[in-house]
């Protein structure tokens, strides 16, 4: 029983990180209708910069710098690349982000080279703690708490600030919201910045022994891949759904790793996604696209 509870805590902790990633993904999708295949690269670039400045500035400042850089990277991708390819369809823009992803992944992996695996979770990585009589890794608990606070803040902002209102209006109807005086570029740019920042925070938990595994930051691009199924399971148009999707992915991963095999954990996530898609082709909470003839 205590093993099971431990698995659940681990799963929720991982799931919270995936939820952060998937939420950023969905925000970007809602604002620009573009699937951001470079999300793993935003993770990687934030983590790389944080790792590079960590020896000079200490962990906390490095973490803040990393988050900031990831946000700026997201902003730049939108402002410089996407905003200048207006004629391309959203699907082509998704392929464009694949190109960006290839470039960033290649360059960061080259810079990291064959040196020792970089880790970012100094204050909590590899430290056990007691929680209600269970021994759990601190990373999962910290991740869960941080993610819960951030996601709560996001939903408050999404619901009550004028930024959130503009965001919702634009995803409802782009032209009408522009006619109402909402500056479209500001909404999309801020969405990419927020998505990037969330990715920059997620990497602080991904590049750890507990979640990312032995190769630290190097594997976080691959681990961040799980944000796609998370966002798809929840439905690409639903921020709330992405949180649910993230938790489902984290739990499926942890349970499969514990009770089947470590290799199967990755596959289990995608199998869950296929099953969800077979039942609901637009995800659990996604808006079903109406076809008009």
């Amino acid at each position: 029983m205590s093993t099971f509870l431990q698995v659940i805590v681990n799963g929720l902790g991982q799931g919270a990180v995936f939820a952060l990633l998937a939420l950023g993904f969905v925000i970007i999708y809602k604002a620009t209708e573009t699937i951001n295949f470079a999300h793993g690269s935003l993770v990687l670039i934030g983590g790389y910069v944080a790792f590079a400045v960590k020896p000079h500035l200490g962990w906390l400042v490095a973490a803040l710098v990393g988050v900031l850089v990831a946000a700026i990277a997201g902003l730049l991708i939108e402002r410089v690349l996407l905003a200048h390819s207006r004629n391309a369809s959203p699907d082509s823009l998704a392929i464009l982000t694949i190109g960006v992803d290839v470039i960033i992944l290649t360059e960061v992996t080259r810079r990291l080279g064959t040196a020792a695996a970089p880790f970012l979770g100094d204050p909590y990585d590899n430290k056990a703690m007691q929680l209600l009589g269970l021994t759990v890794s601190r990373t999962y608990v910290v991740a869960l708490v941080v993610a819960a606070i951030l996601i709560g803040l996001f939903f408050l902002a999404f619901r009550y600030t004028s930024w959130g209102l503009e965001m919702r209006a634009q995803s409802e109807n782009r032209e009408a919201s522009a006619l109402m005086g909402i500056r479209s570029w500001r909404v999309t740019a801020s969405a990419w910045a927020v998505g990037g920042a969330l990715a920059g925070i997620a990497v602080l938990f991904l590049a750890t022994n507990d979640i990312g595994g032995g190769s630290g930051l190097l594997s976080s691009h691959t681990v961040a891949f799980a944000a796609f199924p998370a966002a798809i399971i929840g439905g690409l148009t639903s921020p709330g759904g992405s949180v649910v999707g993230g938790l489902v992915v984290g739990l499926a991963n942890a349970i499969a790793a514990q009770y089947v095999s470590l290799d199967f954990a990755n596959v289990a996530v995608y199998l869950v996604m296929l099953v969800v898609l077979l039942a609901r082709p637009a995800g659990l909470f996604g808006k079903v696209e109406q076809l008009r003839v």
């Binding site: 391309a88 464009l96 190109g99 290839v102 470039i103």
Partner: peptide, 10 residues
């Protein structure tokens, strides 16, 4: 090829 993809789509 990453750069080519970006440039071609743009």
């Amino acid at each position: 090829f990453g750069a080519l993809i970006v440039l071609i789509i743009m």
